[in-house]
Computed example of a mutant assay.
Amino acid sequence: MLKKKLPLIIGSLLVVAYLMTSFFVVNEAEYSIVTRFGRTVAVHDEPGLRVKLPMPFERVVRFDKRNMYQIIPEEEFLTSDKKNIVVSSFLTWRIVDPEKFLTALRTRDAAEARIENLMKSLFGAALGQKPFTDYIPADITQASDMRAAENISIMEEKIYNEASALASRDYGIELTNIGVSKFNFPAQNLISVYARMRAERERIAKSYRSEGDAEARKVIADANRRSAEIISAAEAEAEIARGEAEAEAARIYAEAYKDKEGFYEFLRTLEVYGSIIDNDTTLILPEDSPLLDLLTNPPLENRKADR
């Protein structure tokens, strides 16, 4: 009985194997390429159930059709003035021509290796056309930083355009984004770079201090000028007030001593004596000096003589 059923069992197994290797499902996030002895016979990018010849006649190769993210490790390049600079970048890409991709690369690992080499080659060529200071400024001014950022952006766009054209033409790949993630000095150059940055900051600080000192001198000079003007105006007003007061005092004196000129002269003479004569003063005057008139001929004796 077993010998009679054996051909039937084998036939059933062959039919099952044929059915299992003849039907395959295409996922919505992938390309499915049917190859016959290494040659592409069909490319499926719509999801669903598909049929092919059983193995080993036909095989299915699957590729992801979504965007893939790739990091390009940092590499040291030379600028046009022979300065070393370290750059690392990233990019995203996707397969747009699965048949060309299969023929040129076959696997994602091979594609990433080829893309990495392409990117490093393009970065080296682009950086070699510009001096070091176009990408990392020698000073720390905002204008220099903006100019360096603009140069990096221009370089990224140029590399993107060149890499996109090559990847599409040779590998069936579309580059969707490229960016620089690190742009720095080599480790052995950091000490000299930091010293230069420190010197630049000291120069800027000195400039700020000099400007501050100049502004301070200007403020002080302006304050002194205004102070002198205020004092001068105040002294002028004081002189005017003093002159007016003296004039008023003279007027009051004149009214007070009106018709009493002799008495006024007598008081003024006493004031003069008080201002020039004291216990330590020796005064030598001629006999007919008007200053001695009050002493030699007092008013009281003059009145007695008159009587």
Rank of each mutant, 00 (worst) to 15 (best):
L2Q: 07
K3V: 15
S12I: 11
L19H: 11
E28I: 02
A29T: 15
E30D: 05
I33Y: 02
F37N: 07
G38P: 01
P47S: 05
L49I: 15
M55R: 13
M55K: 14
M55V: 14
E58I: 01
R62K: 14
I71R: 02
I71L: 02
E75P: 03
K83I: 01
N84K: 08
F90W: 07
F101R: 08
A104W: 03
R106S: 09
A110E: 12
E112W: 00
A113F: 07
I115Q: 00
I115K: 00
L118N: 03
L122M: 02
T133S: 10
T133L: 03
P137L: 01
A138V: 08
D139S: 02
D139A: 01
Q142T: 11
S144Q: 06
M146Y: 02
A149H: 10
A149T: 10
A149S: 13
E150T: 12
E150G: 10
E150V: 06
N151P: 01
I152Y: 00
E156T: 06
N161Y: 10
S168G: 10
Y171V: 01
N177T: 15
N184F: 12
P186I: 08
A187C: 05
V193A: 15
A195C: 02
M197W: 13
R198M: 14
R201D: 09
A205I: 01
K206A: 14
Y208T: 03
G212P: 04
R217W: 07
K218G: 00
N224C: 06
R225A: 06
S227E: 09
I230W: 06
A233G: 04
E237H: 10
A238V: 08
R242N: 09
G243P: 00
A245Y: 05
E246F: 04
E248H: 12
E248N: 13
Y253W: 07
A254C: 11
Y257L: 09
K258F: 09
D259E: 11
F263L: 15
E265S: 12
L267E: 14
E271C: 11
S275L: 03
I277A: 10
I284W: 12
I284H: 11
P286Y: 02
D293M: 10
T296V: 05
N302A: 11
